[in-house]
């Protein structure tokens, strides 16, 4: 059963109609090919216009769409010899953070991601993509490993944010995030991060202080969720659509503010309508970003990465 978002209702209705007509044909009824083709064109046109003018709140919903490709899908499609690595060597293995080594287009790389999971069972296992301190400590360990062996780092970020829990605080959630950001900034190897869905605050930047940061067309990247922001500033979580507008969390805005380096266009109707095409487009962009970085030595990479982040805020005006 395909999952439609509220604002996709008219499209869902058209597609339902097409499906119904098709069934009549299959059942040996009258030929309705022409009618189906007409409706299909209409649905496509509607999809196109709807997705061309998504509001920031609608983009937030698309970014959280359950059928949207997740970090593990990117790894499965883009990385060969995939070898997951586990554990922070201190307390636990946090499955909200996916980490490992493998080959991207033949080149050995380290890969990090935040994984939300696909069904109830895997969502619980991955804690809905919300990492605990162990997750960020695992990330830091993999970044350091990559540095020691000269492996470029790729990260795929999709998280509502770091997990807000009692144990997470007791074990130093803030410190773990801070150290992970530091590890990103210090990495002596090329680092390309991609915000594939939700870029939720500190939990996202912990894996995304990279040389190049890509963002999918309908992904969002924000300092706080629209709901959280609305409940604080409007004292009403229902004002989330307005908060989403005010926060400027879309890929287009982040690019204009010079906070991300490039926006990767999504297939028409969003990455969830054609995951394979969305993943392939990301693969191409990652490759294009990585290529020139491979020629730079560790000192140059670090210096440029620092310069880039030091500028953020100085020249960021809409």
């Amino acid at each position: 059963m395909r999952h439609f978002l509220d604002f996709e209702k008219p499209i869902a209705e058209l597609e339902g109609k097409i499906e119904e007509l098709r069934r009549t044909t299959d059942a040996g009824g009258i030929d309705v090919a022409e009618e189906v083709a007409r409706l299909r064109d209409k649905a496509q046109a509607l999809l196109k216009t709807t997705y061309a003018k998504l509001t920031p709140w609608q983009k937030t919903l698309v970014a959280r769409h359950p059928d949207r490709p997740h970090a593990s899908d990117y790894v499965a499609a883009l990385v060969t010899e995939w070898t997951p690595l586990a554990g922070d060597r201190a307390f636990a293995d946090d499955k909200a953070v996916l980490a490992g080594i493998g080959r991207f287009r033949g080149r050995a790389v380290a890969v990090l991601g935040t994984e939300k999971g696909k069904d109830t069972e895997s969502r619980v296992r991955h804690n809905f993509g919300m990492a605990r301190p162990e997750g960020y400590r695992k990330a830091r360990r993999i970044i350091e490993l990559a540095g020691r062996f000269g492996l470029p780092i790729l990260s795929f970020v999709d998280t509502a944010g770091a997990f807000p829990g009692i144990e997470a605080e007791a074990r130093g959630q803030a410190e773990a995030i801070a150290r992970s950001i530091e590890a990103c900034l210090e990495a002596p190897v090329p680092f390309v991060a991609t915000i594939i869905g939700e870029g939720g605050s500190g939990g996202a930047i912990a894996l995304a202080a990279a040389d190049r940061v890509l963002m999918l067309e309908h992904a969002v990247y924000s300092v706080i969720s629209p709901e959280g922001c609305a409940s604080i500033l409007w004292r009403d979580a229902a004002q989330a659509p307005q908060a989403a507008e005010a926060l400027r969390l879309t890929a287009e805005d982040l690019r204009r503010l010079n906070l991300v380096d490039a926006v990767v266009p999504e297939p028409m109707g969003g990455a969830h309508r054609d995951p394979a095409a969305a993943i392939a487009a990301v693969g191409q962009q990652v490759q294009a970003c990585l290529e020139p970085l491979l020629a730079l030595d560790a000192a140059t990479l670090r210096a440029r990465r620092r310069e880039k982040f030091l500028e953020m805020g100085r020249n960021s005006v809409l």
């Binding site: 801070a178 990103c184 202080a209 924000s222 706080i224 926060l247």
Partner: peptide
Amino acid sequence: MQEGAISLMQMP
């Protein structure tokens, strides 16, 4: 919050 992702980037 009122500086959105710019605030987030003050972390790195």
